[in-house]
């Protein structure tokens, strides 16, 4: 088992390296220079000094220095925020995003899995139709629309939740719910497909022949197998939820990591782009590793094979 984890870890490091290199290549080929942003009128000498300081004239050196620094937890300077370093920005925003993303995915699992199970068991019936409509609606609503809608209803009219901001528990539910809707849709759909695969299996019949109740056959026997595809989706889902929440952050004024992704890209802030991509792929690799370990634990057929 340890050997398997180590090999997965190696593979993850390779993936991160590939992603880093690819992003780097894209960043250096893109025209534009963050130092010439309209709001920062630098004198030419100062600009030149900065370029030299951050090895911006020598791509290879920059490539090397950045990754060496990143390994030590130093992502270098950002060109958009004057008094901050990338490491400070990430240290500040990452916990917020992790909490929000984790809550959103947790909520998505708690709602999406039962939705998918019921929909598969009552296939073709009214409940299936209702759940399918819910899923399709979740898929068809842009986050900024649901976010604004929830904000207006619960924040402005009902005043059950603060209109925006971050810091207390009361700030959590609305953004987490908004963020979770697309994930609910996807998880419900994965669960439904997995359950349909399993429900006709012989081992369900065996369970019923033993005298197991329908509920237990569905929730204990079938779901054990049907949950596996959902589990492997949870890795990417966590990474996405923790970094792709910029719309939710913007709507609810949450100081998370997502806005930095977008701002870094919009400002062509090479340092911040690379820092964000590294954080994203590290989260992705880490959660995929966790998921793999859980998978091996839940599906004994895989454990021996990896």
């Amino acid at each position: 088992m340890i050997a398997v984890i180590l090999r997965r870890l190696m593979l993850g490091v390779v993936t991160i390296a590939c992603v880093y290199t690819l992003t780097f290549l894209m960043v250096i080929t893109i025209p534009g220079n963050p130092l010439r942003q309209s709001d920062r009128n630098l004198p030419p000498e100062a600009e030149q000094a900065l370029r030299v300081r951050y090895n911006m004239d020598n791509n290879w050196l920059y490539f090397r220095q950045f990754i060496v620094g990143a390994v030590h937890g130093d992502f270098g300077p950002t060109f958009t925020y004057a008094d901050w370093t990338c490491s400070q920005i990430i240290a500040d925003a990452l916990p917020v995003s992790v909490v929000l993303g984790f809550l959103a995915v947790l909520f998505a699992v708690v709602v999406g899995v039962p939705l998918g199970v019921i929909s598969a068991v009552k296939r073709g019936g009214a409940l299936d139709l209702a759940s399918l409509s819910l899923v399709l609606t979740c898929m068809s609503l842009p986050t900024f629309v649901t976010g604004s809608g929830l904000l207006i209803v619960f924040g402005v009219y009902l005043q059950w939740a603060p209109v925006g901001g971050w810091g207390t528990v009361a700030h959590l539910p609305l953004p987490a719910l908004t963020l979770s809707l697309p994930f609910i849709a996807y998880i419900a759909r994965l669960t439904r497909a997995g359950m349909l695969d399993v429900l006709g299996s012989d081992f369900i019949r065996t369970a019923l022949a033993k005298g197991v109740s329908r509920q237990s056959a569905v929730w204990n026997h079938a779901l054990r197998v049907a949950f596996l595809p959902v589990l492997s989706y949870l890795g990417p889902a966590m990474a996405q939820a923790m970094t792709g929440s910029f719309v939710v952050e913007k709507v609810f004024g949450v100081p998370g990591l997502g806005q930095h992704f977008v701002n870094a890209a919009l400002n062509l802030d090479a340092g911040l782009i690379l820092a964000c991509v590294l954080v994203y792929s590290t989260i992705l690799v880490a959660f995929n590793l966790v998921v793999d370990v859980l998978y091996g634990w839940l599906d004994p057929r895989i454990a021996g094979a990896v």
Partner: peptide
Amino acid sequence: IAMIFQEPMTALNPVMT
């Protein structure tokens, strides 16, 4: 009344001991 089935591979739940 107990029952046993034809294909013992698929008739047993693969993820339970």
